[in-house]
């Protein structure tokens, strides 16, 4: 399947500072792509170049097969953008700014669609209020409504839930899921890794202007995530017997907690042998549980090059 967005050899420099380095990235049609990276990694620059707000230094960007410079009308009309900051009009109303956005992106008036979008983000009852009177969360919703007003095929959400309360965040996640189900491709940048973990089909990590990894989320978590078994011992142990050296166990919790890291991809996890050797060594436990690295732990590891 042809990717809906294809970025090839993309570079961006500001004077001596190289913001993006030879970026190659493909976004599949209909997916939710989570673009992660620390502050200043180049996420927003990448998005702004694809959307046409910032000029690239070199490389190519195509959207649905169209070059985003040569055929800017075709590419931009397919894209909706919710920026990171809260740049909203002041004296206009949510209804008017949505109608404006729709027209600006080349679509005729459609009051029914504007109403649908405003209702989906619980803004219909505020449609005639001046935007300056709305709360920060509502302003962010207005920005999402504006981005959806022209029925884009691709939606960029640059930190959409920054500063948003938990309830509203869940509402936005529902909207994003609904958009994906309707065939919209969503590119999401976020600082809340749990957001990407919950929503994204694929994850891309960018750091220092370079794409470090692009992987399906479940595969990424499987391949890079560590799994661990924690045993709660019945009696405190100060030193582990030499028969357990090969397991590289971590002793913690004042000698009452034993942690074993293992890889589920291998033929043998070593758990059965460990339990047997513990029994042989006379070490008893009264509880155990397993856990897997979160996407956040994987992300931090990638960025810090620990994994």
């Amino acid at each position: 399947m042809q990717p809906i967005i294809s970025v090839s050899g993309l570079n961006k420099t500001y004077g001596d500072f190289q913001a993006l380095r030879n970026i190659d990235l493909q976004i599949n049609r209909g997916e939710i792509f989570g673009l992660l990276g620390p502050n200043g990694a180049g996420k927003t620059t990448l998005i702004n170049i694809i959307c046409g707000i910032v000029k690239k230094s070199s490389g190519t960007v195509t959207v649905d097969g169209f070059d985003n410079v040569e055929n800017f009308r075709e590419t931009r009309s397919r894209i909706g953008l919710v920026p990171q900051e809260l740049p909203t009009e002041t004296f206009e109303t949510p209804y008017d700014v949505c109608r404006f956005s729709r027209g600006l992106f080349g679509k005729p008036d459609n009051p029914a669609h504007i109403e649908k979008v405003l209702r989906s983000l619980s803004l219909w009852d505020k449609k005639n209020n001046k935007i300056m009177t709305l709360s920060g969360g509502m302003k962010r919703r207005v920005l999402i409504c504006k981005a959806l007003a022209h029925e884009p095929e691709i939606l960029f959400l640059d930190e959409p839930t920054a500063g948003v309360d938990v309830e509203l965040r869940q509402d936005m996640w529902n909207v994003v899921q609904a958009l994906r189900e309707s065939g919209v491709t969503v590119i999401l940048t976020t600082h809340y890794i749990e957001e990407a973990e919950q929503l994204a089909d694929r994850i891309g990590v960018i750091n220092h202007g370079e794409v470090i990894i692009v992987q399906e989320k479940t595969r990424l978590m499987k391949e890079l995530g560590k799994k661990q078994l924690v045993l709660h011992l019945s009696e405190s142990v100060s030193v582990l017997p030499s028969s357990l050296e090969n397991y590289q166990l971590e002793l913690g919790g004042d000698g009452l907690e034993l942690t074993y890291h293992y890889d589920t991809q291998r033929d043998r996890t070593g758990i059965t042998a460990l339990l047997s050797d513990l029994h042989a060594a006379g070490i008893k436990f009264n509880d155990l549980h397993t856990s897997q690295s979160s996407l956040e732990e994987i992300f931090v590891g990638l960025v810090n090059k620990k994994i």
Binding site: R76, P87, G106
Partner: peptide, 13 residues
């Protein structure tokens, strides 16, 4: 000044 020019710059105009 407000930053809303991003919309104009990203529009097919």
């Amino acid at each position: 000044f407000t930053g809303t020019i991003f919309e104009l710059l990203s529009a097919p105009v």
